[in-house]
């Protein structure tokens, strides 16, 4: 069981949270100007890194708020949490 720290409620069991996938995928401002490739890239393509991943979580069975985390996809260690809309902490592997 992972222990995940909600920025509002503190550390809770993983089973209280739901996963929201890769963070910082912004919807293009002018979709009509995009080519099919660009639109397909926005909708479907993902970074899917082996290592640090900036991702979204929701405290579904708690405060029900969304936040971001930086997690290693091999060890599951989470090194940083930050709020939606905040600037992501540096990905320096520390």
């Amino acid at each position: 069981m992972l222990e995940i720290e909600c920025p509002w409620c503190g550390a809770c069991d993983q089973s209280e949270f739901s996963y929201g996938g890769e963070a910082h995928i912004a919807r293009p401002k002018t979709p009509a100007d995009l080519s099919d490739q660009e639109w397909g890239d926005y909708l479907f393509n993902r970074e899917n890194p082996k290592g640090w991943h900036r991702e979204q979580w929701c405290h579904t069975a708690g405060c029900r708020r969304w936040f971001n985390a930086v997690r290693d996809t091999v060890t599951c260690r989470i090194k940083a949490y930050y709020r939606m809309g905040a600037v992501p902490p540096e990905e320096d592997g520390r």
Partner: peptide, 13 residues
């Protein structure tokens, strides 16, 4: 397990 993972092992929940 429900989140991106390259770990060839799973979690207990």
């Amino acid at each position: 397990d429900g989140y991106n993972s390259y770990a060839q092992r799973g979690n207990l929940p």
